[in-house]
């Protein structure tokens, strides 16, 4: 059974903006699915419709076979949502927030307290459980929303930019937590602007732009379609022009920095050997962007020019 089925979903807001233009999407049970797109592409609208916060204009969404439109209560019992914006009462304490959320899903108070402690500990928030939430740091507030979304132990966890504004150390610990949840059987739908995050965690991916799905495949296939990778080289001696090397595009960013577009079939050895012939000494090398970021930009750019 699919965890999520989206069929020909359309949404036009009252101001006339057509946020979704008939998208269809399936996410398998147990998947870790990335849903990417530039700002305003329609990601949050789709998440809003799945979680019943936004009413669809037409089309249907099913969560584990249950229609959100016709059997909202049953469909919602499968979902945990971590929204993009903070949406908890900042005058309440983390423990209160999580236990109350459990109550809304019919979980008795004793079980709710037990689960709240479990998830607050796993997300390194237990020390803060009795403090007013307003006093928590930005990263702690985001983790609190993850703990809250987990308290009903959902079969489908939706994470709408869960690591926005979180430092890299906390972000990585959040990745570990989410990965473990997925390994334990929870289907995860992730939207993020950190493409490294999607590449690291997700098995399947869809990219949305201007309300339409422009790519829907597995991560390996998508990354395999990348035919050129761009690397940045820092050179020892200043250069006045970029050297000419067959089948490669070299661009001089500044006298000490070269940007090289390397076709997939070309090896790094070939690049270094050619640079060696030109008597150019390379001090260090890094990727201009991660592979998914390159593909994402290319897909979105081509979408906006067509």
């Amino acid at each position: 059974m699919n965890a999520l089925e989206v069929n020909n979903l359309k949404k036009t807001y009252a101001n006339g903006v057509q946020a979704l233009k008939g998208i269809s999407l399936n996410i398998k049970d147990g998947d870790f699915f990335a849903f990417l797109g530039p700002n305003g592409a329609g990601k949050s609208t789709l998440i809003g419709i799945i979680s019943s916060l936004v009413n669809a204009s037409s089309g249907e969404v099913k969560v584990f076979g249950t229609s959100v439109q016709t059997s909202r209560s049953k469909a919602m019992s499968h979902i945990g949502l971590v929204p993009q914006e903070l949406n908890f009462n900042q005058f309440e304490k983390p423990l209160e927030i999580i236990v109350n959320q459990a109550g809304y899903y019919g979980i008795d108070r004793k079980t709710a307290l037990h689960r709240a402690e479990k998830y607050l500990r796993q997300l390194q928030l237990w020390d803060q459980h009795d403090k007013i939430s307003r006093m928590l740091s930005g990263g702690m507030k985001r983790r609190l929303m993850i703990a809250r979304a987990m308290v009903n132990e959902p079969r489908l966890l939706i994470l709408d930019e869960p690591t926005a504004g979180v430092d890299i150390e906390i972000r990585r610990s959040m990745w570990e937590f989410i990965r473990e949840i997925n390994e334990n059987g929870t289907t995860v739908l992730l939207t993020t602007h950190y493409l490294e995050e999607a590449e690291e965690l997700c098995r399947n991916i869809a990219i949305i732009d201007h309300g339409e799905i422009i790519q829907n495949t597995d991560m390996k296939t998508l990354l395999g379609s990348l035919d050129v990778e761009t690397v940045i080289l820092d050179v020892r001696e200043p250069l006045s022009t970029a050297p000419q090397i067959d089948d490669m595009k070299l661009h001089l960013r500044d006298p000490f920095t070269l940007e090289v577009s390397l076709p997939k079939e070309k090896s790094l050895n070939a690049l270094f050997s050619s640079l060696d012939n030109e008597r150019i000494s390379v001090l260090s090398m890094r990727n201009k962007a991660n592979r998914l970021e390159e593909l994402f930009l290319r897909l979105v750019d081509s979408g906006s020019t067509t």
Partner: peptide
């Protein structure tokens, strides 16, 4: 929204 997304 905590209530609106719940099954209640």
């Amino acid at each position: 929204e905590e209530l609106l997304i719940s099954p209640l």
